[in-house]
C-alpha cells in the first residue's frame, strides 16, 4: 500500500487495532493520531468492517454528511473526552470507515459514522491527542485520510 505524507497504516482485525500492516484489514489514517504521547486505555469506536468489500466513495453524499455532522455536533458533543478522530482511507477515492477515540465511552451511540458501518468498541493504547479539525473543510488533503494532511503547495 502506497502511503502518502501525513498518513500512517493501521490494521483492524475485528477485535483489536494494530499499528502498521498486520493480519486483518489495513487502512490509511491521519498520521497525527499515532504520532505523539499515546493516551493509555482510550476507547476507540471503530466504524468499519473487516470485509474487504465494505467501502464507499469518499464523495458519496452520506460519507460527506457524516463529516459535516462530525464538525457540526459530534466533536463538540464529545468535548474534552475526544482524543482524536480519523477516517479510514483505502486509496485515493475509497472510504473504509472511521475511528473516534475518547477517554470516556459516553455518547458513542450518536457517532455519525456508525450510520455507514457498524461500530465496534475496543480499548487501545495507540492513539494520541490531536486538535480537532477546524472546519468547514470536509475534503481530503492530498489523499490523506480526513481530517489529516495539508496541500503540498501550502
Amino acid at each position: 500500500m502506497k502511503v502518502p505524507d501525513g498518513a500512517a497504516l493501521l490494521t483492524f482485525d475485528g477485535q483489536a487495532l494494530h499499528a502498521g500492516e498486520q493480519p486483518g484489514r489495513t487502512f490509511m489514517v491521519d498520521a497525527r493520531c499515532l504520532d505523539g504521547e499515546p493516551v493509555a486505555g482510550a476507547y476507540a469506536q471503530v466504524c468499519s468492517l473487516t470485509d474487504a468489500a465494505a467501502a464507499l466513495p469518499y464523495d458519496h453524499p452520506e460519507v460527506q454528511q457524516a463529516r459535516r455532522d462530525a464538525l457540526a455536533w459530534w466533536i463538540p458533543l464529545l468535548g474534552d473526552a475526544l482524543v482524536c478522530l480519523t477516517t479510514l482511507a483505502l486509496d485515493e477515492a475509497r472510504f473504509g470507515g472511521a475511528i473516534t477515540v475518547t477517554t470516556e465511552p459516553a455518547y458513542l451511540d450518536e457517532d455519525p459514522f456508525a450510520r455507514l458501518f457498524a461500530p465496534t468498541l475496543v480499548r487501545s493504547d495507540l492513539f494520541c491527542r490531536v486538535p480537532p479539525p477546524a472546519g468547514p473543510v470536509i475534503e481530503r488533503y492530498a489523499g490523506v485520510a480526513w481530517p489529516g494532511g495539508t496541500l503540498p503547495d501550502s
Partner: peptide, 13 residues
C-alpha cells in the same frame, strides 16, 4: 458560504 468553503480548502474563524 460554508457550503463552498467546505470543498475549497479555505477556513472561517
Amino acid at each position: 458560504l460554508q457550503d463552498e468553503f467546505e470543498v475549497a480548502y479555505t477556513r472561517i474563524v
